[in-house]
Design a protein around this nucleic acid. Structure first.
Lengths: 136, 136
DNA sequence: TTGCGTGCAAAGGTTTTGCATGGCA
DNA sequence: TGCCATGCAAAACCTTTGCACGCAA
């Protein structure tokens, strides 16, 4: 049984703002404030529910900058969502989000699968570390 | 000004249990339950405060598996600290947290480093997916 | 005796949930 | 009309903090 998935005004507002802001990241509160400033009402629960859906579709990435502070969300865009074959690297120093090419993903993924029976979900996985620039 | 750092019964109990359970991970709640089962009283705040101290001393590792669920703690001190470099695999279905062996870690890590200049932080990174059991 | 550690309960912040209402198809 | 999405408030959740008391040195 498949859910109907209606289109709503709130959904469109949220997605369209995220699309505009590709490459930036937001907390749920950031988003709420943004719409408040425009006198657009968007409930917190709605924001979380929409974001969760987008995350599970691979259109938005969710990650954590600080240990126990709010989650960050970042739009990955239509083009990225299409092909499943990429990883996300998050630099803990500068905060940049990198996209890792397919070959490496395939390598790691198949390694985990063959040797450990573990089927990796690249949508949800974020590799944390330090990028080239920040290591200097 | 240096703090006095008293030795307490609770502290000893906690450390000794962690030492026994080297290589395993716990949430604060796991620890609390463990001591409750033995009819040993150990307040939640005390557990957090002791763990925090151990983390800052580098004897215990603290990491986050799921977005907003409890932090995991793992003893690093003493004998097992050596090369206990491992990855964390989290099954999205059953919720189990697995520890991945060293060789694979090294492989993935050096790959990212050599080919992408990215220095992976294995403590912070959790690989999400589906484990062998849950794929059946 | 001094002052750190403990334990309880309350506060803190983020996210989820229940439920009535609104709105898409 | 049927049923999903929304929004509010309350609940849930983990963790931190305030404060009085206990206990190590």
């Amino acid at each position: 049984m498949i859910k109907a998935a209606y289109k709503t005004r709130q959904q469109e507002l949220l997605i369209s703002y995220l699309e505009e802001s590709c490459g930036k990241h937001f907390t749920a509160e950031d988003l709420k404030k943004h719409f408040e400033e425009q006198n657009i009402s968007l409930g917190t629960a709605t924001i979380y529910r929409q974001l969760e859906k987008l995350v599970s579709e691979g259109k938005v990435l969710k990650y954590f900058v600080d240990e126990h502070s709010a989650a960050c969300f970042e739009y990955l865009g239509g083009n990225c969502a299409e092909d499943e074959q990429h990883f996300h690297l998050k630099c803990e120093v500068c905060g940049t989000l990198f996209h890792l090419e397919c070959e490496e993903l395939a390598e790691i993924k198949s390694h985990l699968f063959k040797d450990h029976g573990f089927e990796l979900n690249p949508f949800r996985t974020v590799l944390y570390g330090t990028c080239q620039n920040c290591r200097k």
